[in-house]
Amino acid sequence: MSMRRLVLALAVVLAPSAYAADPLRLGKPVPADVVAAWDTTVFPDGRGLPQGGGTAEQGRAIYDAKCSNCHGPEGRGETAEELVGREIPLTDPDTAQTIGSFWPYATTLFDYTRRAMPMDKPGSLSVDEAYAVAAYLLQLNGVVAPGDVMNAQSLPKVQMPNRDGFKRIDAK
């Protein structure tokens, strides 16, 4: 390497603006099918909900087998929190923040059940099973009827009782 080329090379390496002028581009482009396989985000408007579905009647057996050990029969709480009940208003000091009394979106219930439950085997429920368990818990809370099918179309339309109960503080 000639001295002139060496000086030039050093100048490029040492120039403070090198990052801005020629940023590192070490991120690897991802094919669309890989993105789709990783993308499990579910939104309140239903975007991200997969095809499939289930009813409360189907969900009951799954809940009894895989959920009731911790959450108790009919979601009334055991070692894990209670999931059902909206008899006591949220203004009462003895209230319980259940799915029916507190959760603002039914889509969240499907998403969390599918990704995180049951805790000894998270992610093990099939899409249909997750919809069915969500339907059962919504039915126990009196939000949907026993025969209602919960799926990508119906779940975002479920009107949760506490939908408007939240005030955003540090973000719009």
Binding site: L90, T91, Q97, F102, F166, K167, I169
Partner: peptide
């Protein structure tokens, strides 16, 4: 959850 029954959200 606040005394008026509403909840503060995104309290970062």
């Amino acid at each position: 959850l606040q005394p008026d029954g509403t909840a503060r959200q995104f309290t970062y």
